[in-house]
Write a protein that binds this DNA or RNA. Structure first.
Ligand code: SF4
Ligand code: SF4
Lengths: 145, 145
DNA sequence: AGTAATTAGGATAATAATATCTAAAAAGGG
DNA sequence: CCCTTTTTAGATATTATTATCCTAATTACT
């Protein structure tokens, strides 16, 4: 609803990296564990390296890792580099470009929602993602055992 | 952010029809007035007829019109028939399918936002769209004159 | 130095979204 | 009945997204 596959894969891969921040992870490993198309993922990781969100190393013991602490990388950052964030500043209705002085239909109803989405992306870091995943694991264990 | 071009065009066309509910409008007219690709729009209008949201008539004096009152047709209905609404029930994060008992990361943060979007689409009718447009026109006149 | 491992980058392929074109069918007006 | 207008439907074209493949470059280890 909010981002492309490419961006979704980027987020999932970076979340995986955040969960294994103690070492480098290979593209192949991430693809297998997260069930992502391997070659496509490699491309995505390359662009994330170019955008300085990741660091990479070639050869044996090579792989990818976050270039900075997980709590400083937000979903917004990732979307910004992969998809761009223009759509978050455009109308849901699509009648004209956004402009507070000359609002289009439903401005007052829609703009707050759009702001909430933007805010959610900006306030959610990879650290939050891993925390949420840990929680899920706990709940899952409690339920089954 | 929420729907495809096709759906956006559908909404804009149907809003136009709601504004001119007293008569039938030709595809060409709608395309010109709303600045939409004409042939693509024709296709879209055809599917809306098949889905019973519009009625059509061929030949001279032909064209398209809403099949029921503007206030009974919501953005949600339109999206449902054009794009489908599955994405409104899926995760923003994309890690797994939605399931309240086994929530994925950020469920509690994201789900309310998603519900707000859904609600917005369900509670916004074509009549609301025309009302908002009228309002805009008024404001625009007051500002310039 | 040699070899295996791994990322980087370019070429290509497959699929989906967006857009156009053309001919056929239906309706109205002469 | 014929001509014009307009929708309908199907074929085709274009572009963007998603995905794969292949080769080169880099590095680690022996
Ligand atoms: S003014 Fe409001 S309704 Fe109009 S484009 Fe901006 S956010 Fe959308
Ligand atoms: S985060 Fe919540 S809304 Fe999203 S898939 Fe998970 S349970 Fe569903």
């Amino acid at each position: 609803m909010i981002y492309s596959k490419e961006c979704e894969y980027a987020i999932r891969a970076m979340t995986y990296l955040a969960q294994h921040a103690d070492r480098r992870c290979m593209a192949k490993e991430i693809a297998e564990k997260e069930n992502l198309p391997q070659h496509f993922l490699s491309k995505i990781l390359q662009t994330l390296v170019r955008e300085k969100l990741l660091e990479s190393a070639k050869g044996p013991k090579g792989g990818f890792q976050l270039s900075k602490p997980a709590k400083t990388i937000t979903l917004y950052h990732i979307k910004k580099f992969v998809d761009g964030v223009d759509d978050l500043n455009e109308c849901a209705v699509g009648l004209t470009k956004c402009n507070d002085e000359m609002p289009c239909p439903l401005h007052d109803d829609f703009k707050p929602i759009r702001e909430k989405v933007k805010n959610y992306l900006k306030s959610t870091s990879l650290a939050d993602m891993t925390k949420a995943l840990d929680n899920k694991k706990k709940i899952s264990k409690a339920a089954s055992g």
